[in-house]
Write a protein that binds this DNA or RNA. Structure first.
Lengths: 182, 182
DNA sequence: GCTTCGAACTTTAGCTTTGAAGTCTTCAGA
DNA sequence: TCTGAAGACTTCAAAGCTAAAGTTCGAAGC
């Protein structure tokens, strides 16, 4: 796709005002945090999407590369493990791996010790793509946080982690079908 | 879909350690903020998804209801405006409206003053669904922030807004194809 | 040794979205 | 009035996903 169709998004302030108008029992303080968080995340994903596109890979492929790299040497995982890690169905994983094998980012082979299993392994090219993506991403992230002092960064990280613990506690293990973009 | 396939996600700390191992020139402070933000947002979307599902609507439908309500009385918008607001192509909007009309959440009619245009209008049922969803969401959000003091909430909102301004400045207007979930 | 069960992956059918092409309406100029 | 161009929506084909039904291999019981 590439570029958005519209500019027609209200500012954060306008949006919060609209919420107040349409739904009174809403704490504007809370709503501001939640809306800013959601919006910020969306914009960041757009930025990541552009960067990976510039490298000729999709965001979906980037996720797979990331999972493999973070799994550590020898950069191998089974399709089911990858599917779980990325929050996809096994069927979707099969197709995604098909595409990535065709592009030379990963290889797929049967595990000879247990022929039911399949091993997906990162290729040198795949690893290089991930590294390039990380170089771009780290520059972007550093730039994003540039206005925050060291202390503010620490505090922000700490507060977000606290919120994270709270959601994870509130959502035992059920989860949902959302992609894994950290 | 419903429930996730896997529990196999590393903790935030494990993930950051893996990043350090595979990509040295990365500031752990920065990475922690970015990863926590992304992960938190994901979990929140899962929670919203469960809540809307419990009301018998999809997240996609919730987004449309939200756009219409926030547009204010008389809760009307054209398909193109909705598409821009939600970051969808006009084609996708056509289909989505089809479904929602069938479910009685909105109505679609031609604008008699300009027969090229179409007007999508929220029904009473659609508005009620949105209100129910908001009641659930506001409880969840309040609960999420419960451990934060009033001062912390203010600071968090302020810092996130600052980051938001920075991303928006860095990304003039191009945008991308991500759904609008605030 | 054969059979049955379970695990891991693939295949199939159906849905939602995209991008591109098509239709219908309005408006401006000849 | 007619013609051409632009705008707003819809239709169509193809991509990618989910859920459910295969397929194949390995392991346990009879």
């Amino acid at each position: 796709m590439g570029d958005t169709h519209g500019i027609g998004e209200p500012t954060l302030e306008e949006q919060i005002a609209a919420y107040q108008r349409e739904f009174q029992d809403l704490d504007p303080q809370v709503e501001k945090v939640v809306s800013a968080l959601s919006r910020l995340n969306r914009r960041m994903n757009v930025a990541y999407g552009r960067q990976t596109a510039a490298l000729g890979i999709s965001n979906a492929e980037w996720e797979v590369l990331k999972a493999l790299v973070l799994s550590g040497v020898p950069y191998r995982m089974g399709p089911s493990d990858l599917a779980k890690r990325l929050g996809l169905t096994p069927a979707a994983m099969t197709h995604r791996i098909d595409r990535m094998v065709a592009e030379g980012l990963v290889t797929r082979e049967r595990d000879e010790s247990n022929r039911v299993r399949v091993i997906v392994e990162l290729t040198a090219e795949g690893r290089e793509k991930w590294l390039e993506a990380m170089r771009l991403a780290s520059v972007f992230e550093e730039d994003l946080l540039q206005d925050l002092s060291a202390k503010e960064r620490t505090t922000l990280g700490e507060v977000l982690t606290r919120l994270l613990r709270r959601v994870e506690h509130a959502q035992p293990d059920a989860g949902g079908r959302l992609s894994d973009l950290d």
